[in-house]
Design a protein around this nucleic acid. Sequence first.
DNA 1: GACAACCTACCTACTAGTAGGTAATTTAGT
DNA 2: ACTAAATTACCTACTAGTAGGTAGGTTGTC
Lengths: 185, 185
Amino acid sequence: MDTREQIVSTTEKLIITKGYNGFSYQDIADVIGIKKASIHYHFKTKEDLGVAFVQMYHDRFNTWTASVKDKPNLDRLNGFGKLFKIVSNNGKHICPIGMLTSEYKTLPEKVQQKVHDILATMEDWTTELIEDGIRTNIYKPSIDSRLMAKILINSLSYETKTARIFENDNQLDQIFAELKKLIVA
Amino acid sequence: MDTREQIVSTTEKLIITKGYNGFSYQDIADVIGIKKASIHYHFKTKEDLGVAFVQMYHDRFNTWTASVKDKPNLDRLNGFGKLFKIVSNNGKHICPIGMLTSEYKTLPEKVQQKVHDILATMEDWTTELIEDGIRTNIYKPSIDSRLMAKILINSLSYETKTARIFENDNQLDQIFAELKKLIVA
DNA sequence: GACAACCTACCTACTAGTAGGTAATTTAGT
DNA sequence: ACTAAATTACCTACTAGTAGGTAGGTTGTC
Protein backbone atom coordinates (compact mmCIF):
# COMPACT_ATOMS: atom_id res chain seq x y z
CA MET A 1 0.00 0.00 0.00
CA ASP A 2 1.55 3.29 -1.11
CA THR A 3 1.38 6.51 0.90
CA ARG A 4 -1.66 7.85 -0.93
CA GLU A 5 -3.63 4.68 -0.20
CA GLN A 6 -2.46 4.75 3.42
CA ILE A 7 -3.79 8.31 3.76
CA VAL A 8 -7.23 7.40 2.39
CA SER A 9 -7.37 4.24 4.51
CA THR A 10 -6.45 6.18 7.64
CA THR A 11 -9.04 8.80 6.72
CA GLU A 12 -11.70 6.08 6.77
CA LYS A 13 -10.73 5.00 10.29
CA LEU A 14 -10.64 8.60 11.51
CA ILE A 15 -14.01 9.54 9.98
CA ILE A 16 -15.54 6.51 11.72
CA THR A 17 -14.33 7.64 15.13
CA LYS A 18 -14.03 11.43 14.85
CA GLY A 19 -16.00 12.47 11.77
CA TYR A 20 -14.82 14.65 8.87
CA ASN A 21 -14.66 17.82 10.94
CA GLY A 22 -13.11 15.97 13.85
CA PHE A 23 -9.97 14.58 12.25
CA SER A 24 -6.92 16.58 11.24
CA TYR A 25 -4.03 16.15 8.84
CA GLN A 26 -1.88 15.87 11.97
CA ASP A 27 -3.92 12.84 13.10
CA ILE A 28 -3.22 11.11 9.79
CA ALA A 29 0.45 12.10 9.90
CA ASP A 30 0.81 10.60 13.38
CA VAL A 31 -0.76 7.29 12.31
CA ILE A 32 1.31 6.69 9.19
CA GLY A 33 4.51 8.33 10.42
CA ILE A 34 5.00 11.16 7.95
CA LYS A 35 4.76 14.93 8.30
CA LYS A 36 1.57 16.91 7.89
CA ALA A 37 2.91 18.87 4.92
CA SER A 38 3.47 15.62 3.04
CA ILE A 39 -0.24 14.88 3.18
CA HIS A 40 -0.87 18.24 1.53
CA TYR A 41 1.42 17.03 -1.24
CA HIS A 42 -0.91 14.10 -1.95
CA PHE A 43 -4.18 15.94 -1.22
CA LYS A 44 -3.85 19.69 -1.64
CA THR A 45 -6.82 20.43 0.61
CA LYS A 46 -8.90 18.51 3.12
CA GLU A 47 -11.82 18.84 0.72
CA ASP A 48 -9.83 16.94 -1.93
CA LEU A 49 -9.15 14.17 0.59
CA GLY A 50 -12.82 14.03 1.59
CA VAL A 51 -13.87 13.73 -2.04
CA ALA A 52 -11.30 10.98 -2.66
CA PHE A 53 -12.48 9.01 0.35
CA VAL A 54 -16.19 9.09 -0.51
CA GLN A 55 -15.39 8.28 -4.16
CA MET A 56 -13.35 5.27 -3.00
CA TYR A 57 -16.25 4.14 -0.82
CA HIS A 58 -18.69 4.61 -3.72
CA ASP A 59 -16.42 2.61 -6.04
CA ARG A 60 -16.22 -0.14 -3.45
CA PHE A 61 -20.03 -0.34 -3.32
CA ASN A 62 -20.29 -0.37 -7.12
CA THR A 63 -17.72 -3.17 -7.28
CA TRP A 64 -19.74 -5.16 -4.77
CA THR A 65 -23.06 -4.70 -6.59
CA ALA A 66 -21.39 -5.71 -9.86
CA SER A 67 -20.02 -8.85 -8.19
CA VAL A 68 -23.48 -10.01 -7.04
CA LYS A 69 -25.60 -8.81 -9.95
CA ASP A 70 -26.23 -12.34 -11.33
CA LYS A 71 -26.90 -13.97 -7.97
CA PRO A 72 -30.42 -14.89 -6.79
CA ASN A 73 -32.44 -12.12 -5.17
CA LEU A 74 -32.25 -13.57 -1.66
CA ASP A 75 -28.48 -13.92 -1.92
CA ARG A 76 -28.23 -10.25 -2.85
CA LEU A 77 -30.51 -9.28 0.04
CA ASN A 78 -28.48 -11.34 2.51
CA GLY A 79 -25.26 -9.97 1.04
CA PHE A 80 -26.50 -6.43 1.55
CA GLY A 81 -27.23 -7.18 5.19
CA LYS A 82 -23.81 -8.73 5.60
CA LEU A 83 -22.24 -5.52 4.26
CA PHE A 84 -23.41 -3.66 7.37
CA LYS A 85 -22.28 -6.54 9.57
CA ILE A 86 -18.76 -6.21 8.14
CA VAL A 87 -18.81 -2.41 8.48
CA SER A 88 -20.00 -2.68 12.09
CA ASN A 89 -17.05 -4.94 12.97
CA ASN A 90 -18.82 -6.42 16.02
CA GLY A 91 -20.10 -3.07 17.27
CA LYS A 92 -16.71 -1.41 17.12
CA HIS A 93 -17.22 0.69 13.96
CA ILE A 94 -19.99 2.66 12.30
CA CYS A 95 -20.85 3.33 8.69
CA PRO A 96 -18.68 6.33 7.67
CA ILE A 97 -21.33 7.50 5.20
CA GLY A 98 -23.77 7.68 8.12
CA MET A 99 -21.28 9.91 9.90
CA LEU A 100 -20.95 12.18 6.86
CA THR A 101 -24.74 12.24 6.53
CA SER A 102 -24.93 13.71 10.03
CA GLU A 103 -22.20 16.23 9.32
CA TYR A 104 -23.59 17.09 5.87
CA LYS A 105 -24.38 20.76 6.45
CA THR A 106 -20.81 21.55 7.48
CA LEU A 107 -19.08 19.57 4.73
CA PRO A 108 -17.31 21.32 1.83
CA GLU A 109 -19.48 21.52 -1.28
CA LYS A 110 -17.70 18.84 -3.32
CA VAL A 111 -17.79 16.39 -0.41
CA GLN A 112 -21.53 17.08 0.01
CA GLN A 113 -22.05 16.25 -3.66
CA LYS A 114 -20.22 12.94 -3.31
CA VAL A 115 -22.18 11.99 -0.19
CA HIS A 116 -25.41 12.87 -1.98
CA ASP A 117 -24.37 10.65 -4.89
CA ILE A 118 -23.49 7.54 -2.87
CA LEU A 119 -26.70 7.82 -0.84
CA ALA A 120 -28.72 8.02 -4.06
CA THR A 121 -26.84 5.05 -5.54
CA MET A 122 -27.45 2.91 -2.46
CA GLU A 123 -31.12 3.83 -2.26
CA ASP A 124 -31.67 3.16 -5.96
CA TRP A 125 -29.89 -0.19 -5.87
CA THR A 126 -31.88 -1.36 -2.85
CA THR A 127 -35.14 -0.11 -4.35
CA GLU A 128 -34.47 -2.14 -7.50
CA LEU A 129 -33.60 -5.19 -5.41
CA ILE A 130 -36.95 -4.99 -3.65
CA GLU A 131 -38.83 -4.27 -6.87
CA ASP A 132 -37.27 -7.38 -8.35
CA GLY A 133 -38.29 -9.41 -5.31
CA ILE A 134 -41.87 -8.27 -5.59
CA ARG A 135 -41.98 -8.86 -9.35
CA THR A 136 -40.72 -12.43 -8.95
CA ASN A 137 -43.16 -13.17 -6.10
CA ILE A 138 -40.41 -13.72 -3.55
CA TYR A 139 -41.41 -10.63 -1.55
CA LYS A 140 -44.77 -9.50 -0.21
CA PRO A 141 -46.72 -7.62 -2.91
CA SER A 142 -48.03 -5.02 -0.44
CA ILE A 143 -44.58 -3.48 0.01
CA ASP A 144 -43.61 -0.07 -1.39
CA SER A 145 -40.15 -0.76 -2.77
CA ARG A 146 -38.58 2.67 -2.26
CA LEU A 147 -39.96 3.16 1.23
CA MET A 148 -38.90 -0.32 2.28
CA ALA A 149 -35.45 0.32 0.80
CA LYS A 150 -35.14 3.38 3.01
CA ILE A 151 -36.41 1.50 6.06
CA LEU A 152 -33.86 -1.23 5.43
CA ILE A 153 -30.91 1.13 4.91
CA ASN A 154 -31.88 3.47 7.76
CA SER A 155 -32.41 0.64 10.24
CA LEU A 156 -29.10 -1.06 9.52
CA SER A 157 -27.00 2.07 9.15
CA TYR A 158 -28.30 3.64 12.36
CA GLU A 159 -27.92 0.35 14.21
CA THR A 160 -24.15 0.39 13.61
CA LYS A 161 -24.13 3.58 15.68
CA THR A 162 -26.27 2.39 18.58
CA ALA A 163 -24.42 -0.94 18.60
CA ARG A 164 -21.21 1.00 19.24
CA ILE A 165 -22.80 2.83 22.16
CA PHE A 166 -24.44 -0.19 23.79
CA GLU A 167 -21.50 -2.44 22.92
CA ASN A 168 -24.00 -4.81 21.38
CA ASP A 169 -22.60 -6.85 18.52
CA ASN A 170 -25.45 -9.19 17.65
CA GLN A 171 -28.58 -7.04 17.34
CA LEU A 172 -27.67 -6.04 13.80
CA ASP A 173 -28.28 -9.66 12.77
CA GLN A 174 -31.56 -9.75 14.66
CA ILE A 175 -32.80 -6.50 13.14
CA PHE A 176 -31.91 -7.73 9.67
CA ALA A 177 -33.75 -11.00 10.36
CA GLU A 178 -36.82 -9.09 11.58
CA LEU A 179 -36.73 -6.90 8.46
CA LYS A 180 -36.51 -10.00 6.25
CA LYS A 181 -39.59 -11.37 7.99
CA LEU A 182 -41.40 -8.18 6.94
CA ILE A 183 -40.13 -8.26 3.36
CA VAL A 184 -39.96 -11.90 2.26
CA ALA A 185 -43.28 -13.57 1.45
CA MET B 1 -36.45 33.36 28.17
CA ASP B 2 -33.43 34.08 30.39
CA THR B 3 -29.83 33.91 29.21
CA ARG B 4 -29.27 30.38 30.47
CA GLU B 5 -32.27 29.14 28.52
CA GLN B 6 -31.16 31.07 25.45
CA ILE B 7 -27.77 29.37 25.63
CA VAL B 8 -29.28 25.89 25.81
CA SER B 9 -31.76 26.70 23.06
CA THR B 10 -29.00 28.02 20.81
CA THR B 11 -26.94 24.92 21.61
CA GLU B 12 -29.78 22.80 20.24
CA LYS B 13 -29.81 24.70 16.94
CA LEU B 14 -26.02 24.54 16.65
CA ILE B 15 -25.81 20.81 17.44
CA ILE B 16 -28.40 20.20 14.71
CA THR B 17 -26.31 21.98 12.09
CA LYS B 18 -22.72 21.62 13.28
CA GLY B 19 -22.70 18.89 15.91
CA TYR B 20 -21.27 18.99 19.43
CA ASN B 21 -17.66 19.15 18.27
CA GLY B 22 -18.54 21.60 15.51
CA PHE B 23 -20.02 24.44 17.52
CA SER B 24 -18.13 26.83 19.73
CA TYR B 25 -18.91 29.15 22.61
CA GLN B 26 -18.17 31.98 20.18
CA ASP B 27 -20.97 30.73 17.89
CA ILE B 28 -23.44 30.90 20.78
CA ALA B 29 -22.16 34.31 21.85
CA ASP B 30 -22.64 35.67 18.32
CA VAL B 31 -26.22 34.38 18.14
CA ILE B 32 -27.47 35.74 21.46
CA GLY B 33 -25.30 38.85 21.51
CA ILE B 34 -23.17 38.37 24.60
CA LYS B 35 -19.48 37.69 25.10
CA LYS B 36 -17.93 34.23 25.10
CA ALA B 37 -16.73 34.55 28.70
CA SER B 38 -20.30 35.13 29.85
CA ILE B 39 -21.29 31.69 28.63
CA HIS B 40 -18.57 30.23 30.82
CA TYR B 41 -20.30 31.99 33.71
CA HIS B 42 -23.49 29.96 33.07
CA PHE B 43 -21.79 26.73 31.97
CA LYS B 44 -18.27 26.40 33.32
CA THR B 45 -17.22 23.95 30.62
CA LYS B 46 -18.57 22.81 27.27
CA GLU B 47 -19.11 19.40 28.83
CA ASP B 48 -21.48 20.98 31.39
CA LEU B 49 -23.42 22.61 28.57
CA GLY B 50 -23.58 19.35 26.63
CA VAL B 51 -24.91 17.54 29.69
CA ALA B 52 -27.51 20.27 30.30
CA PHE B 53 -28.71 20.13 26.72
CA VAL B 54 -29.18 16.35 26.57
CA GLN B 55 -30.84 16.41 30.00
CA MET B 56 -33.27 19.08 28.76
CA TYR B 57 -34.03 16.98 25.71
CA HIS B 58 -34.55 13.90 27.89
CA ASP B 59 -36.88 15.85 30.20
CA ARG B 60 -38.81 17.06 27.18
CA PHE B 61 -39.32 13.47 26.01
CA ASN B 62 -40.37 12.35 29.50
CA THR B 63 -42.86 15.21 29.68
CA TRP B 64 -44.31 14.17 26.35
CA THR B 65 -44.63 10.47 27.27
CA ALA B 66 -46.33 11.48 30.54
CA SER B 67 -48.77 13.65 28.60
CA VAL B 68 -49.87 10.79 26.35
CA LYS B 69 -49.71 7.89 28.79
CA ASP B 70 -53.48 7.51 29.10
CA LYS B 71 -54.23 7.91 25.42
CA PRO B 72 -55.12 4.94 23.18
CA ASN B 73 -52.20 2.96 21.77
CA LEU B 74 -52.65 4.16 18.20
CA ASP B 75 -52.73 7.78 19.35
CA ARG B 76 -49.43 7.26 21.14
CA LEU B 77 -47.94 5.57 18.06
CA ASN B 78 -49.10 8.41 15.80
CA GLY B 79 -47.87 10.96 18.32
CA PHE B 80 -44.45 9.33 18.36
CA GLY B 81 -44.28 9.59 14.58
CA LYS B 82 -45.34 13.21 14.72
CA LEU B 83 -42.48 13.92 17.15
CA PHE B 84 -39.98 13.23 14.36
CA LYS B 85 -42.07 15.26 11.93
CA ILE B 86 -41.80 18.25 14.27
CA VAL B 87 -38.07 17.71 14.81
CA SER B 88 -37.49 17.45 11.05
CA ASN B 89 -39.18 20.82 10.48
CA ASN B 90 -39.95 20.05 6.83
CA GLY B 91 -36.53 18.59 6.08
CA LYS B 92 -34.66 21.55 7.49
CA HIS B 93 -33.53 20.02 10.80
CA ILE B 94 -32.32 16.66 12.09
CA CYS B 95 -32.70 14.90 15.42
CA PRO B 96 -29.89 16.27 17.63
CA ILE B 97 -29.65 12.98 19.52
CA GLY B 98 -28.93 11.29 16.20
CA MET B 99 -26.11 13.76 15.69
CA LEU B 100 -24.69 13.03 19.15
CA THR B 101 -25.05 9.31 18.47
CA SER B 102 -22.74 9.71 15.48
CA GLU B 103 -20.26 11.78 17.45
CA TYR B 104 -20.47 9.53 20.52
CA LYS B 105 -16.85 8.32 20.62
CA THR B 106 -15.50 11.88 20.78
CA LEU B 107 -17.98 13.22 23.35
CA PRO B 108 -16.90 13.98 26.94
CA GLU B 109 -17.71 11.16 29.33
CA LYS B 110 -20.68 12.80 31.07
CA VAL B 111 -22.28 13.75 27.76
CA GLN B 112 -21.83 10.17 26.56
CA GLN B 113 -23.63 8.93 29.67
CA LYS B 114 -26.58 11.27 29.04
CA VAL B 115 -26.83 10.26 25.38
CA HIS B 116 -26.74 6.61 26.43
CA ASP B 117 -29.56 7.26 28.91
CA ILE B 118 -31.94 9.04 26.53
CA LEU B 119 -31.40 6.40 23.84
CA ALA B 120 -32.25 3.68 26.37
CA THR B 121 -35.33 5.60 27.56
CA MET B 122 -36.63 6.05 24.01
CA GLU B 123 -36.01 2.44 23.08
CA ASP B 124 -37.68 1.15 26.24
CA TRP B 125 -40.72 3.41 25.86
CA THR B 126 -41.22 2.37 22.23
CA THR B 127 -40.73 -1.30 23.06
CA GLU B 128 -43.43 -1.07 25.72
CA LEU B 129 -45.73 0.72 23.28
CA ILE B 130 -45.38 -2.13 20.80
CA GLU B 131 -45.70 -4.80 23.49
CA ASP B 132 -48.94 -3.15 24.57
CA GLY B 133 -50.18 -3.11 20.97
CA ILE B 134 -49.48 -6.80 20.57
CA ARG B 135 -51.07 -7.68 23.94
CA THR B 136 -54.26 -5.81 23.07
CA ASN B 137 -54.43 -7.41 19.60
CA ILE B 138 -54.03 -4.08 17.79
CA TYR B 139 -50.64 -5.05 16.37
CA LYS B 140 -49.51 -8.14 14.50
CA PRO B 141 -48.58 -10.92 16.95
CA SER B 142 -45.56 -12.03 14.90
CA ILE B 143 -43.65 -8.84 15.73
CA ASP B 144 -40.66 -8.76 18.08
CA SER B 145 -41.36 -5.64 20.12
CA ARG B 146 -37.79 -4.54 20.84
CA LEU B 147 -36.53 -5.14 17.34
CA MET B 148 -39.51 -3.34 15.83
CA ALA B 149 -38.98 -0.47 18.27
CA LYS B 150 -35.42 -0.12 16.98
CA ILE B 151 -36.52 -0.36 13.34
CA LEU B 152 -39.08 2.38 13.99
CA ILE B 153 -36.69 4.73 15.79
CA ASN B 154 -33.78 4.09 13.41
CA SER B 155 -35.90 4.58 10.30
CA LEU B 156 -37.42 7.86 11.45
CA SER B 157 -34.31 9.31 13.06
CA TYR B 158 -32.09 8.57 10.08
CA GLU B 159 -34.73 9.85 7.68
CA THR B 160 -34.52 13.33 9.25
CA LYS B 161 -30.90 13.34 8.06
CA THR B 162 -31.47 12.13 4.51
CA ALA B 163 -34.50 14.43 4.18
CA ARG B 164 -32.18 17.36 4.90
CA ILE B 165 -29.79 16.23 2.16
CA PHE B 166 -32.42 15.51 -0.49
CA GLU B 167 -34.55 18.46 0.56
CA ASN B 168 -37.45 16.09 0.81
CA ASP B 169 -40.03 17.07 3.38
CA ASN B 170 -42.76 14.49 2.92
CA GLN B 171 -41.06 11.09 2.85
CA LEU B 172 -40.94 10.99 6.65
CA ASP B 173 -44.75 10.71 6.62
CA GLN B 174 -44.66 8.03 3.98
CA ILE B 175 -42.04 5.98 5.82
CA PHE B 176 -44.04 6.22 9.03
CA ALA B 177 -47.17 5.12 7.14
CA GLU B 178 -45.30 2.15 5.64
CA LEU B 179 -44.01 1.18 9.09
CA LYS B 180 -47.53 1.36 10.51
CA LYS B 181 -48.70 -0.98 7.73
CA LEU B 182 -46.08 -3.46 8.99
CA ILE B 183 -46.97 -3.06 12.66
CA VAL B 184 -50.73 -2.59 12.89
CA ALA B 185 -52.88 -5.69 12.39
C1' DG C 1 -22.71 46.41 50.53
C1' DA C 2 -23.52 42.08 48.36
C1' DC C 3 -24.21 39.42 44.66
C1' DA C 4 -25.47 38.24 39.87
C1' DA C 5 -24.43 38.88 35.29
C1' DC C 6 -21.81 40.57 32.44
C1' DC C 7 -17.30 42.55 30.48
C1' DT C 8 -12.07 43.07 28.65
C1' DA C 9 -8.04 40.93 27.96
C1' DC C 10 -5.54 37.35 27.98
C1' DC C 11 -3.60 32.18 27.75
C1' DT C 12 -2.31 27.66 25.61
C1' DA C 13 -3.27 24.38 22.19
C1' DC C 14 -4.65 23.27 17.86
C1' DT C 15 -6.37 23.96 12.93
C1' DA C 16 -5.72 24.14 7.54
C1' DG C 17 -2.71 25.70 4.64
C1' DT C 18 1.87 27.77 2.64
C1' DA C 19 6.84 28.87 1.64
C1' DG C 20 10.88 27.12 0.56
C1' DG C 21 14.20 23.50 0.56
C1' DT C 22 16.28 18.64 -0.27
C1' DA C 23 17.41 13.97 -1.71
C1' DA C 24 16.36 10.42 -4.85
C1' DT C 25 14.39 8.90 -8.87
C1' DT C 26 12.75 9.31 -13.76
C1' DT C 27 12.74 11.19 -18.29
C1' DA C 28 14.71 13.38 -22.49
C1' DG C 29 18.34 15.08 -25.53
C1' DT C 30 22.74 14.57 -27.33
C1' DA D 1 26.08 5.84 -22.40
C1' DC D 2 26.10 10.39 -20.29
C1' DT D 3 24.08 14.16 -18.57
C1' DA D 4 20.76 17.85 -17.71
C1' DA D 5 16.10 18.81 -16.60
C1' DA D 6 12.12 17.60 -14.37
C1' DT D 7 9.41 15.12 -11.11
C1' DT D 8 8.32 12.64 -6.81
C1' DA D 9 8.03 12.53 -2.13
C1' DC D 10 9.19 14.10 1.54
C1' DC D 11 11.08 17.74 5.08
C1' DT D 12 11.36 22.21 8.52
C1' DA D 13 9.37 26.30 9.72
C1' DC D 14 5.92 29.29 9.42
C1' DT D 15 1.18 31.90 8.90
C1' DA D 16 -3.52 33.53 10.30
C1' DG D 17 -7.25 32.02 12.60
C1' DT D 18 -10.04 29.55 16.13
C1' DA D 19 -10.73 26.50 20.06
C1' DG D 20 -11.82 26.08 25.26
C1' DG D 21 -10.82 28.25 29.23
C1' DT D 22 -9.33 31.87 32.98
C1' DA D 23 -8.24 36.15 35.83
C1' DG D 24 -9.91 40.05 37.21
C1' DG D 25 -12.62 44.27 36.53
C1' DT D 26 -17.38 46.66 35.74
C1' DT D 27 -22.28 47.30 35.99
C1' DG D 28 -26.94 47.00 37.71
C1' DT D 29 -30.33 45.42 41.13
C1' DC D 30 -32.02 44.16 45.67
